[in-house]
Amino acid sequence: MAMDQLAAMATFVRAVDSGSLSAAARSLPSSLTAVSRQISALEQHFGTRLLVRTTRQLALTDDGRMLYERAKSILGEVKEIEEALAGSRREPSGRLRVSAPTLMGRLLIAPLLGDFLHACPSLSVDLLLVDRNVNLIEEDVHLALRVGRIPDSQLVTRKLAEVQMIHCASPGYLARRGEPQSPSDLPRHDCLVFSDAPGAATWRFGRDAKGGSRIRIAGRLWVNSLDALASAAENGAGIVRVPSWQVERQLAEGRLRRLLREHEPAPAPLHALYQPSRLGSAKIRAFIDFLVERWRGSDPLGR
C-alpha cells in the first residue's frame, strides 16, 4: 500500500472521528482543501462514495463505514510496527484491547489489572468480556484469551495454562436423586447446561481423545452464565459442569460435591492469541508475561 494511500486513510479516519472536514484539518494540522482532496482521491481510488457531506456533519455510507473500520485496524498495525522498529518495545505504552471469557475475565483477570497498570504507567487497557470468539481485526482487539483447542489459523498463539472442567452438585440434590456412578447415569439426572440455545448438549468424558466417551445431556436448565449455573447447582437444581477454579470455595465449604472425578475430560488449554503483525508489541508481551508470572505457583485455574 502506497504511503499516500495510508495518509489519505489516516485523514479519512480523522475526519470521521472529528465529525467534519474542517475539524480534521485543524487537528492534523492541514488545510481544508488538502483534506477534501485526500478524501476525494480515496473515493476515486475505491470507486465508491465514502461520505455524505452536509452543512453540519458527515455521514458514512455503507462502503465508508466498512473502510473506516478496516482503516483503523490497518493504521493501528502500522503504528505497532513503527513502535517496534523505533525501539519502544522497552517501554509498553498506548492502549491495549484485550478480550476474555466473561467469568474468567471478571474473577481472574480484572482483579490483577490494578497491579498491571501500576507496573506499566504509560499503558491503558480495554477489557472486553464476551463468551464468543471475537474477530481480532474487525473488532480492533490486540489480544484474545480463549479456552480450548485452537483451529489452524494465522494467529500467533501462546499457551498460558490449562482449565479443568468438573461436575458437581449440592449434597441436597444428591440426597434426593442419588450420586451418578458413571457418565452413562447422567441422562437420568437433572443437568444444568451452559448455553444460550436450549436443546440437547453433549458432555465429553475421559482423558484419552480416542478412548473417551460423549454423553448426550437433556438439560433441565439452560443458562448463558456460569455464575448463574453454579448458584442454581448450589441450591439443589441439579448437576453442573464448570471450571474447577470457579467453585473452589463451594467445594471446600461442602456446599457442592465433586462427581465423576475419574471420568473427567482432559484439561482444556488456555491460549493467548494475537496477530502476527503484533509479534514485536511491547504491550502484548508485557501483559502475557504478567499473567504467566502472577499465575505461576498460585494455580488459579486448578491446573
Rank of each mutant, 00 (worst) to 15 (best):
W222C: 12
S22Y: 08
W222L: 03
A230L: 02
V78W: 07
L270P: 03
P151E: 00
M66W: 00
A228I: 08
A197T: 10
K79V: 04
Q164A: 10
L123M: 06
T157I: 08
L174Y: 03
V125S: 04
E82Q: 13
A197M: 06
T11E: 13
A252Q: 14
R146D: 04
L279Q: 14
S31Q: 01
M3S: 13
E77T: 07
G302I: 00
C191W: 05
P180Y: 06
H118A: 14
M104T: 12
A59H: 12
V125T: 07
C191G: 08
R56T: 15
V242T: 13
A25M: 07
S93A: 15
R220H: 10
M9Q: 14
T55N: 12
S88D: 13
V13G: 08
S36Q: 13
E138D: 15
V125D: 07
H167Y: 14
P243C: 11
H45S: 13
S30N: 11
V247F: 07
T202S: 09
G87H: 05
V52W: 02
L123E: 09
K283T: 06
R89G: 15
D63S: 15
V240T: 05
S195K: 10
A272E: 03
H118P: 09
F116I: 06
T48W: 00
L113E: 02
L260M: 01
N224A: 12
S277V: 14
E248V: 09
A197K: 05
M9E: 14
S27K: 09
G87N: 05
D299A: 10
G148Q: 06
W222M: 03
G178R: 03
L251N: 01
P151C: 01
T157C: 05
D17F: 11
P111S: 07
L127S: 04
R90T: 15
S153Q: 00
H118R: 12
L136N: 02
R146Q: 13
V242H: 11
D140C: 11
E43M: 09
K159I: 02
P276M: 07
A161F: 12
P101F: 03
G211W: 01
R65Q: 15
L67D: 07
S30K: 14
L112E: 06
P187L: 08
M9P: 05
V223K: 12
R176C: 02
L301H: 10
A71N: 00
R89S: 14
F12K: 12
M9R: 13
V35S: 04
L103H: 02
E179H: 06
L192Y: 02
V240F: 01
V78H: 10
D17H: 05
M66E: 13
T61L: 04
M9N: 04
R158K: 12
E43C: 04
R204F: 04
P243G: 09
G254Q: 03
G19F: 07
Q57A: 14
